[in-house]
Design a protein around this nucleic acid. Sequence first.
DNA 1: TAGATTGTTAATCGATTAACAATC
DNA 2: TAGATTGTTAATCGATTAACAATC
Lengths: 240, 240
Amino acid sequence: MSELNNDGKIDIDDLPSLSELKRRSDMVQNAPSAVVRRLPRYYRYLRNLLNRDVLRVSSSELSKQMGVTASQIRQDLNYFGDFGQQGYGYNVKYLYMQISRILGVGEKYNAVVLSSPGFYGFLADNMVFEMRGIRVRGVFDTDRENVGKTVGRFEVGHISELEVFCRDNNIDIAVIAFSGENAEIVAETVKKLKLRGIWNFSNTELKANDETCVQNVFPGDSLMLLMYGIKEKYTDRAEP
Amino acid sequence: MSELNNDGKIDIDDLPSLSELKRRSDMVQNAPSAVVRRLPRYYRYLRNLLNRDVLRVSSSELSKQMGVTASQIRQDLNYFGDFGQQGYGYNVKYLYMQISRILGVGEKYNAVVLSSPGFYGFLADNMVFEMRGIRVRGVFDTDRENVGKTVGRFEVGHISELEVFCRDNNIDIAVIAFSGENAEIVAETVKKLKLRGIWNFSNTELKANDETCVQNVFPGDSLMLLMYGIKEKYTDRAEP
DNA sequence: TAGATTGTTAATCGATTAACAATC
DNA sequence: TAGATTGTTAATCGATTAACAATC
């Protein structure tokens, strides 16, 4: 990192051949899910480098930071294109942009958040939508207590208004964070409306169908893995 | 499932040999991380069966519900012991208890939640602690606005009280949900106090050390995978 | 040019699935 | 006993790592 022998710019005229583009698009279709699941983590590390004004990074430098092999990083990135330069490494901003594009950041999806105001507040604090280019259009709760409260720039609506709201506002994604059977009832509505995606934080596993993608998030699962990890660590020690 | 040829009870006197126990404990130590990461999902499905008063389940029945192969289920469970019976399947309650034990549910860890009241509310709504046998002892925030507010059975304390509180209350686990650099500062304190685990919801990846286990939860990662999934699904369709 | 580092192939490793003997 | 289903081995599949020629 001491001497830069390149200003980090990419030559826009140096376009790949059509057969090369074809090969790459085949690779992208075939990108193993293990690789895809690692992309968000690359995205986070690259954004961090970007925030620190780092211009370039090599696979070996990044591998040290992330605790994975350099080989894996090069292999992973190459499923999607030739983003690096021999002898130089990767241009941080360019690579960040490529990964953003692959993941679909900035696709401008419209979302509704179906949760208590507190949970929406947590998501808003973490800037989880803003940073991924998702536009939240409304917040709805099942609990009449909360309806009418203001959270951020939203007035919490009642869940019964959801169907009309989605149709009027071109909603793509529903974030569901209700517990119990409310989650399942709402999920049925969302699927009936053929929204494109459900981001599910409820304690019931939701299934995707032909129209609606689902990502289930079970915080409790990772809590249990933490408990497992602690048990392993402290039990091993107690033994001779 | 139509006829039960067994009452589902396990003969307490039918204990395995010492060499068998040794073999199993070796297996458990060697349990591949891919298997361990699936345990919480088994736990959830079994609890669901339990709630529906299902007495027994076969690997093939469970495989249909979970969308995995029966072979994987049998292979996974066998890393930890012989929990089933030929010709019968698995006793739901027994298997649920075994998986709970393996994961360390009910180890009675004491936890503090370091977050806004809203996020604590979400965790409480989902009963994520109660269901895993973790005892929350206090909630602390960095924001003076929130100090003194009541959430559930807690009065929110200020983060500056954390060190004394942890020492006085035998705290094992810290849940960190602050955004920005507050998360890193608090994580340092937690590591200095040698708590056993950090359950991290902040937007900075925290690293484990010799004393403190870490589970990072990045909701944004799964949101990006949802965006990726939507892009794939709807782009494939647009093509011929 | 010399040094550095990628892209990519081949080798290794680990995880999943298939198959079936054991046995409830 | 006959039917069902596990536990477990062997075969397959996929993911990771090592190595190095290509090349910036």
